[in-house]
């Protein structure tokens, strides 16, 4: 598909677009006539929802790290493992690769996601040093990768159903698994609530709605 000249957004053309099926309707149409999805030119409560889910997600992420994820009972001992503790133990046994996967999925990705979503949301209000295209990429990465944090919960589920060897050894899930799962779900909802069209508006707003405030970017659209 070729783009002739400057890219115009549906809002600039006085239209509203369905984000589910990409159909375009006259501005103000409440639901998409094709797929029935609810439409808004811009989700005005988007940032509120993002922050609400973000905060709940963060609230769940803290106990997820403090409480034990796994409770391992063997003949001689009972051991509680937190997320980080479990990874450290794996590393001590020489399983560096797996320890790395666990740390990446349960610590780096969630924290990176909190930071990324927060900076995207802040960027809409205050502007960002990153270009719109970069921020869009960041958003897509966050959406794609966020689900993978669930891996730790699945590992706990698998281990605790598999390792049931009577008195010899058994593994039970800890409370942290619940909090961790909730945290992943809430941050996914937080990312989904973000209206990525807001990223691009900053570019065109300068040209259309507030020409006097920022005349330095008359063309609006960046490549």
């Amino acid at each position: 598909m070729e783009i002739a000249g400057k890219v115009k957004s549906a809002r600039e053309m006085g239209l509203v677009a369905c984000r589910r099926c990409t159909r375009v309707w006259p501005g103000g149409t409440p639901t998409c006539g094709r797929c029935g999805h609810r439409m808004q030119s811009r989700d005005t409560t988007s940032l509120q929802k993002v922050w609400a889910w973000w905060i709940v997600g963060m609230m769940c992420y803290i106990p997820a790290n403090l409480y034990p994820m796994l409770v391992t009972r063997t003949l001689v001992s009972t051991q509680d493992n937190t997320i980080v503790g479990g990874a450290v133990e794996l590393a001590q046994h020489g399983n560096y690769g797996i320890a790395l996967v666990i740390i990446a999925a349960s610590v780096l990705i969630p924290i990176g996601k909190f930071i990324a979503v927060a900076s995207l949301a802040l960027g809409v209000r205050q502007g960002s040093r990153l270009s719109s295209a970069r921020r869009q990429q960041l958003f897509e990465v966050v959406e794609y990768i966020g689900r993978w944090s669930m891996i730790d919960v699945f590992v706990v589920a698998i281990l605790s159903s598999l390792v049931q060897l009577g008195a010899l050894a058994s593994i039970a899930p800890g409370v942290a698994s619940l909090f961790f799962a909730l945290s992943v779900i809430f941050t996914m909802l937080s990312a989904q609530s973000f209206d990525s069209r807001l990223i691009w508006d900053a570019d065109s707003d300068d040209a259309t709605t507030q020409p006097s405030v920022n005349p330095s970017n008359p063309n609006g659209v960046t490549a």
Partner: peptide, 16 residues
């Protein structure tokens, strides 16, 4: 309007 398509991510409108 049927001939238009809007990008769900950035709201850019194109002729299909």
């Amino acid at each position: 309007l049927e001939e238009l398509i809007a990008c769900p991510h950035c709201d850019a409108v194109y002729h299909v």
